[in-house]
Amino acid sequence: MRAFVTHSGIVAPLDCSNIDTDAIIPKQYLKSTCRSGFGVTLFDDWRYLEPGEPGQDHGQRKINPDFVLNQPPYDRATILLARDNFGCGSSREHAVWALTDFGFRAVIASGFADIFFNNSFKNSLLPIVLKEKYIDFLFQIVNDNPGYQLQIDLTQQRISGDDFEAIGFEVDKFSKHCLLNGLDDIGLTLEHSDSIRDYEGEHRRQAPWLFRA
C-alpha cells in the first residue's frame, strides 16, 4: 500500500450530505474485475450529461460543465470536502478506487459511513472527520478562494492552510501506523497465525456445528 505521511493539494467542495457510493461510482462499472481504471467514471451520473457504459471512450462523452470536478482547477483536486454520512450505502470498494484513481488522497467530511471509512484506509485514502463548524469554515474559505490548497500532516494529525491556524483531527493508532508506513494489514494479521489457530481449535471444540470440514 502507498504510504501517506503529508499531502498538499487543491480542495474540491461538494456541498451535500449523504453522498452514496452509487453516486460515487454507478453499478455498471462494478463489472470490472480490476482495481484500477475507475477514475474516469467517478461521479459518472453527475459528471457527464449522457449515460455511460463500461468499455466506451469516456473522453468522447459530453461533460456537465456545472459539476465541480469538471471546472478547472478542481479537475486537479486531490482533497475532497463534503458533508455528513459521506460514502453511505453500498459496500463497493470501487468507490474508493474511483476516488484514488482520479487523484484524491483525502476526503474531509463531518461524518463517514462505516464501511466506506474502513475501505478508505485500505487504499491509502485518508478520511478526515471534522466537526461541522470546521467543515462550514472550510467550505467558506474554499468557496471564497477557488483553487485553495490545504496541507495535511498525518504524523501531527493536523490540517493547515495559508489563512488559518492548524485544525487537528483524530485517527486511530493502528490505521495511522499502517498509513504512515504503507503496511499491508493482511501481513500484520498473519504474524498472529498461531493465535488464530489456537482460537480456532478452541472454537471448534465449543461450537463444532460451525465447522463442516
Binding site: R35, S91, E93, N119, K122, F174, I186, I196, E200
Partner: peptide, 23 residues
C-alpha cells in the same frame, strides 16, 4: 453480520479474521 469491502474480503480469505473496532 456486517458488510465489508473487497480488501476485507481478501483479509478474511487469507486469515479468517478481520481487524475491527467495536461499535
Amino acid at each position: 453480520a456486517f458488510g465489508i469491502g473487497t480488501s476485507e474480503v481478501e483479509h478474511v480469505l487469507a486469515t479468517q479474521c478481520l481487524i475491527q473496532k467495536k461499535s
